[in-house]
Amino acid sequence: MLASTLVLIALLCVGVLTKVPYAEMSPGPTTNTLSSVGGKPVLQISGHKTYPTSGHLNMVTVRVTSADTRLNMVEAVYGWLSHDQVVVPHDTLYPDGQTEQQSTQENAEEFSESQESAKVSALRLLHIPFVSHVDVASVLKGSPAEGRLHAGDLILAVDGTGVTRQEQVAQLVTRHKPGQDVTFTVVPAEQAADAKKADKQPTGGREVVVKTATSHDQGKKRAIVGIAAGTDHTFPFSIDIKLADVGGPSAGLMFSLGLVDKLTPGSLTGGTFVAGTGTIDDSGTVGPIGGIAMKLVGARDAGARYFLTPADNCAAAAADTPSGLTLVKVKNISDAKASLDKIRTGDTAGLPRCSAG
């Protein structure tokens, strides 16, 4: 008995002291996008009529161990055995040695982009007009554009040709030979940001000349200036999404639906508790997310009855669905709204559901 006890103690000590290259995921907080947090609405709209809402349109999150944390063997085994936790290889969450700071920055950028796409997709669904602009998304360090163009600059024209789509920028630049000058007509980032805060159209473009260089990536050699073009938008009224300590792109769908609910009469859910997840792009297409199993558990524990599930996550979600939760398959925001209409009217037999396999 004594020998067995000593061996057990030794094994526990080894398990506690031995670090393994794994990380842990568990259900995180879930927030109703129609509610207030810290006394402030999650979705703040001013300058346009809004309507009362009811029920829940909850976005869900996943808690993960930090990039600097290494599970010990005991913690890993416990996580593998637990139904409400998932243990995955550390590199799955933090690839290429990504640090905690880099991960936080990336999540913050993705969260900001998802908010913008949520606004765009909601207004498009409701046929509310707004203005889109091509902008400088990033400038490559050491490139010809460094110091001449800046992230956030709005691009009005290239060589006098007006641009309305981001792909036009590369098309116009590559008409040149390396070493030739390209003339950009831009509104500086600070000036553009001030106009956006005031919900006004940016004005006052200036010309910036950049000499092209030769591309060094794979594929045919071509002229480049070293920028990535993106798209920015000016909305006809103010829309702010306020939610602290959340990152990543997976709340996009639920933010968009929350905006639709606030901007239209009646309640999308009819008072029902609906949760969901999914990225969303400007066209309203819903994309897959990570940690679906943990998000389902979090939604069920919060009281959700229906869960809006990206189509590409359906098989994995249906393989282990928490009891009492109905998975609703969505491909885009129109799908999601149509399903909410069915839930509100009680026509749940017609819901597109997830199936395993």
Rank of each mutant, 00 (worst) to 15 (best):
K262W: 11
E100F: 06
E110Y: 14
A108W: 14
G303E: 05
T348V: 11
P178A: 01
V286R: 09
N32M: 12
S117G: 12
S238N: 13
G205L: 04
R175M: 00
S323H: 12
T164F: 06
T33F: 01
G55P: 05
S323G: 13
T164V: 14
M294R: 08
A198S: 15
G324K: 10
E146A: 11
I333D: 06
A170S: 03
V330S: 05
P188N: 12
D301G: 00
L154A: 07
V297N: 11
M59Y: 13
A3P: 02
V37E: 08
H133F: 15
T33L: 04
A275K: 01
G346C: 05
T277G: 09
R175W: 04
S339G: 01
L81W: 05
A244H: 14
D335E: 06
S339Y: 02
L43C: 07
V64P: 07
S132L: 14
G291D: 09
R165Q: 14
S36M: 05
M25D: 07
V169D: 02
L325Q: 10
A349L: 08
G230F: 03
G152A: 12
V60C: 07
L149P: 03
E75R: 11
G258F: 01
T104Y: 14
K177Y: 02
P352Y: 06
G230I: 13
V88N: 04
Q180W: 04
V274W: 09
M1P: 10
L243M: 08
F184G: 00
V86Q: 02
D91R: 10
L156H: 06
V60K: 03
L243D: 12
A151Q: 03
G276Q: 08
A198D: 15
D84Y: 08
G205I: 03
S132R: 12
T164R: 11
T214M: 15
A157R: 07
L11H: 06
Q85V: 11
T234G: 11
T285D: 11
A151M: 11
S121A: 15
F237K: 04
E167D: 14
Q101I: 15
C314H: 02
A316W: 02
A228G: 07
I224M: 07
F255S: 13
P352A: 00
Q85E: 09
A229D: 11
